[in-house]
Amino acid sequence: MRPGDEADAMGDAELVFRFKEGEKSAFEDLVRRYMKEAYAFCLRLTHDAAEAEELSQQGFLSAYRSLERFRGDSTFRSWLYRILINLNRDRVRRRRRAEARLAAIREEARYRPAAPGEESAVRAAELEGVVRARIERLPDRQREVLVLHVYQGLPYTEIAQVLGCSYDDVKMNLSLARRRLREELKEYL
């Protein structure tokens, strides 16, 4: 657990308690606490500002509706991540089904037509787009684990809690994701 997390978790529990006691505005404070983190996480998953906003707002609204039933088996933060991940899986499924619908608009750099003779040089400006594209193409579970760990800074045990899997599953998926990214990004390493 990172420094300050424990105090945060206690603060969260207090806010959840107040919410359940009828003080609905306590939820606002939870949104203020986690909005930036949740939004950044959604942006990592969707690569699109509009979709990130939609997903994170849905996540909070869904948390608001279910908070009465939240038993506190995990921290509020882990629970919120779980909601966001489930919503994102629905979103991806919907998107895959919708044949003609526009896929998430991705980085311009990724699709710039390749100019002859340009391939061998490493272009720093492109790297960002390439990394995002590679992460996006990881299998769902590997991508979730990687983003939660590398970008959201969650330790293995908390990721296991969010995803409802074991510590070893987290370790294995993270390792597989890294192995694949190392291979795919080797020209940049």
Partner: peptide, 13 residues
């Protein structure tokens, strides 16, 4: 690899 991954910013929040 970690360095390359972490260098990608999340975008404006």
């Amino acid at each position: 690899l970690e360095g390359i991954l972490r260098a990608v910013p999340p975008g404006p929040v």
